[in-house]
């Protein structure tokens, strides 16, 4: 807010940061990951709001995203990991620095642990569409992911 606005002479401009969540979600669903990261880098408010979507987003909204972002990337940023959803396939991508050399199962476990993504959520994503998962450059089919998830679950 500028000086005159603070004194009440000029009404502060409404900014995109103040848009309600529902509207903001639609807007970011149109953005590719680079632009979404740019938008998050504009202010702490935007950063926190977009980050919060992942944590508070109920499955219905996740479905909404996955349905509405065909051929698009959507990054839902968690504290330390990125969950990228695509409609042609879903990518759960960890920071390559952290996942390099790990097995797929280790990567899944790390992503779930670090992103606080529970098994139900991952399974939901698997079930939503006949998506494939991609870890780094490796694509994995859905059946294999589900088998790995089952084994992780069995170890819980």
């Amino acid at each position: 807010m500028n000086f005159l606005a603070r004194l009440g002479f000029v009404k502060p401009r409404k900014r995109y940061e103040e848009l309600p969540d529902y509207v903001l979600r639609i807007i970011i669903s149109y953005l590719n990951r680079e632009t979404l990261l740019s938008l998050m880098a504009t202010s702490n408010v935007m950063r926190k709001r977009i980050q919060s979507f992942r944590i508070t987003t109920p499955p219905r909204i996740i479905r909404h995203f996955t349905v509405s972002i065909r051929q698009r990337d959507l990054i839902l940023l968690t504290e330390r990991k990125l969950v990228i959803l695509r409609t042609s396939f879903i990518c759960l991508v960890g920071n390559p620095k952290h996942i390099k050399g790990d097995s797929i199962q280790e990567i899944i476990e790390k992503i779930m642990r670090n992103s606080k993504m529970d098994l139900e959520n991952v399974r939901f994503l698997c079930d939503t569409k006949p998506f494939r998962f991609q870890f780094g450059t490796e694509e994995v089919d859905r059946k294999r992911i589900l088998m790995i998830l089952e084994s992780i679950c069995g170890n819980c």
């Binding site: 807010m1 995109y16 807007i27 740019s38 998050m40 880098a41 504009t42």
Partner: peptide, 23 residues
């Protein structure tokens, strides 16, 4: 919403801030 998202496309964070007058 699409029109708003178009204003962000291909821009860096500082560029978006400048265009939208975000301090």
């Amino acid at each position: 919403c699409k029109a708003i998202s178009n204003t962000f496309k291909g821009k860096t964070g500082p560029q978006i801030r400048e265009e939208w007058g975000v301090p």
